[in-house]
Design a protein around this nucleic acid. Structure first.
Lengths: 232, 232
DNA sequence: CGCCTGTTTGACCATTGTCAAGGTGGGTGG
DNA sequence: CCACCCACCTTGACAATGGTCAAACAGGCG
């Protein structure tokens, strides 16, 4: 369930934005106090209401953070490899207010909150990095909120697909990173609505075979998102 | 439009959670660099996309922070007297990503972002206070998101009204702090839906005359919110 | 007293969730 | 290697929530 950290884990830890500018002592203290968990897809890492004793860093895989219940929920954000979660809970309230669920197999570093808080106090550079991380998180939750409250389903999906676009305006093909069911949840809709939204997008030059999506004309999609009812 | 800070302003500044544990020098530098604005109801303090050159502290009055347009928007949170806003934008991106609009007459302290950032770097206690403020903000935006995505309108209103409840479970009477139109916006619904939601609540022991609301049985409302479709 | 704005109400409509059923595809075991 | 099975996905019909439009109403401030 739980094992000691290895040097390889440590390398990955250093590579993360939040931990890259630490003093060696601070890094060492965090590293020594931490443990590594292997998680399988769909594993619940913590649930709302539990005591927030740890801060987590994703070494590999992805984790979804949501409010609400298993069956009906609102996804706040998805944590990818190299990012942390549980940060706010462990810094302030002492209780997790959301649920963290692995959406792929992965490896998670578990850092005791007390160690983490001590590090924040002792290392001003670290405090700054934490400020940065919290800001980004606030930003992305706000973005998510805006998308879901103001955009209709079709535009939500379109804007999701556009995130994968290459720099140039060319056509491109992607493989969806998750089951459609899961992406639907992230986009705040049921799987049926997702499917119908995809169908609508096919009328705008897009084909989709299984998990592979081909976007013929990215600019069309972008235009779709831009003029979501500004004048309702 | 804009005037120098007075000693009275300074007193208020010290009283704010974010600024209460500063070193005298830090406080002084912030105080000296800041200006005070009088704002009238509905005044836009900054808009999305503008360069984020200042962080604001509310000395009196209230300010709504939202995404989207004037006519269709999503309110992220409401800033009350003694709190700050523009924090995240001025700390990171350099551009405001939301709009700040006064929802009452008020006095706003404007702190240059550069001064603020310098203070964060130089004073570890201040950095900690900023971490705390950002955490709270993240928490309240997440709460807002959850309410709006997961709760139907009636429950949203109920939970709003319950926030004003006194500690004991007794009946209580409040005066709504804003026009109903504005509260409706905050709760993510139109004024009509707000009105209808209020009507529904009248069936659960609640009376409402103008802006005065009398809650006969708070526990009933609380129950209403608790069992919002956990098993849809 | 009268305007202007906020509020209520009713009728209607659009979007999305829900339920049910059928299709598809990939992996497993015979 | 094939067939089956299960989970995922799609589709259709339907219901419900909430938004929209329009009109009546109320209340505060000149």
């Amino acid at each position: 369930m739980d094992r000691k950290t290895t040097l390889h884990d440590r390398q990955e830890l250093c590579g993360m934005a939040l931990f890259s500018n630490l003093t060696p002592q601070t890094l060492e203290s965090i590293f020594l106090a931490s443990r590594v968990n292997e998680v399988v897809n769909h594993a619940v890492i913590f649930g709302a209401g539990q005591s927030a004793d740890d801060i987590f860093a994703v070494l590999s895989g992805q984790v979804q953070i949501y409010r609400g219940t298993d069956v009906k929920n609102a996804v706040l954000f998805v944590v990818r490899s190299g990012e942390v979660f549980g940060l706010r809970s462990a810094l302030t309230t002492g209780l997790y207010t959301e649920t963290a669920e692995a959406v792929s197999n992965g490896r998670i570093l578990r850092i005791p909150a007390s160690t983490f808080r001590a590090a924040v106090k002792s290392d001003p550079h670290f405090a700054e990095a934490v400020i940065h991380a919290l800001s980004q998180r606030l930003q992305s939750v706000s973005d998510q909120f805006e998308r879901i409250q103001l955009m209709p389903t079709v535009q939500r999906l379109a804007s999701y697909l556009i995130n994968f676009a290459p720099g140039n305006g060319d056509a491109y093909e992607i493989r969806l990173p998750f089951e459609k069911k899961l992406i639907a949840r992230y986009l705040g809709m049921g799987p049926e609505s997702f499917s119908r939204a995809m169908k609508k997008l096919k009328e705008h030059g897009l084909s989709c075979k299984g998990r592979n999506v081909h976007i013929r004309n990215p600019e069309t999609l972008r235009a779709l998102c831009r003029d979501y009812d500004l004048t309702p």
